[in-house]
Design a protein around this nucleic acid. Structure first.
Length: 233
DNA sequence: TGTCTAACCTATTCAGATT
DNA sequence: AATCTGAATAGGTTAGACA
């Protein structure tokens, strides 16, 4: 980013970390909280008017005064604000300065509020993605596990038939029976696991479980052209 | 190369909303 | 009152610009 843009950004307090470099090292004095609060000095006169109007109608997003000491309340965003923010988020998960300012003007919110909302929204989205990924992997595991059990049962049946043919049980099998050159299967009651490592561990070892949300976004959950969350909010 | 700063992240706090 | 939800904060990391 160019210096000019950075300076402008800082001047307008559009940066998410508005306090960087100027963060007070001591607790904020209550009596001066209005001074430290980023909502106080609005660089957008028009926005203030809009916010005041919204407050009057009970839809305001500007923190109202909690008491005589100017301590401000947290206010939830209105449905309209969230709707527009959501639409914007669906269009693009990241927020560029221009869009931030546009949303700020349209919604009557401080740029930093827009940035914070997007940051929190990305966090929620990521959590949902991970939950969804867990479900997908669990389902895949269950399918593979069931398949494995069926195959094991089939092996046992075939073994039983073989031993019957070879002398009605004269030949006993050990605890582990060779199936292939690489893998053995436990023939005990808990014989559902591969010796050594489970499928999931095996997959994890091969790095299949190592992914980023971006990778996941473009491979597992979403169609290739889709770069915004398919998982609902 | 080191410093500065914007932008991002995760973890956490805290207050309003809900049960 | 307890719990949930989400707006906001704290502090750390990263990347780009610049001297």
């Amino acid at each position: 980013m160019e210096l000019k843009e950075r300076d402008l950004d800082r001047e307008l307090e559009t940066d998410m970390d508005w306090h960087h470099g100027t963060k007070p090292l001591v607790p904020r004095p209550e009596t001066l909280s209005f001074f430290y609060n980023y909502n106080y000095n609005s660089p957008y006169p028009g926005v203030e008017v809009k916010q005041a109007a919204l407050m009057e109608t009970g839809e305001g997003s500007v923190p109202a005064l909690m008491d005589s000491r100017n301590k401000e309340k947290k206010k939830r965003l209105t449905n309209n604000q969230i709707e527009l923010l959501e639409r914007s988020f669906q269009e693009e998960i990241k927020l560029d300065p221009e869009r931030k300012m546009k949303l700020s003007r349209e919604l009557g919110l401080q740029p930093r509020q827009i940035a914070v909302w997007f940051q929190n929204r990305r966090t929620r989205w990521k959590t949902k993605q991970l939950e969804h990924l867990y479900d997908v992997l669990k389902h895949q595991y269950d399918v593979v596990s069931n398949e494995k059990q069926k195959l094991q049962e089939e092996v046992m049946k075939l073994k039983a038939m073989l031993s019957k043919e070879q002398g009605f049980g004269k030949q006993t099998f050990g605890c582990y029976t060779e199936i292939s050159g690489e893998e053995t299967v436990e023939s005990t009651s808990e014989g559902l696991t591969l010796r050594g490592k489970s499928n999931i561990e095996h997959v994890a070892d091969q790095g299949y479980c190592s992914f980023t949300v971006e990778d996941y976004n473009t491979t597992v959950l979403l169609p290739p052209h889709c770069h915004w969350p398919a998982v609902p909010y």
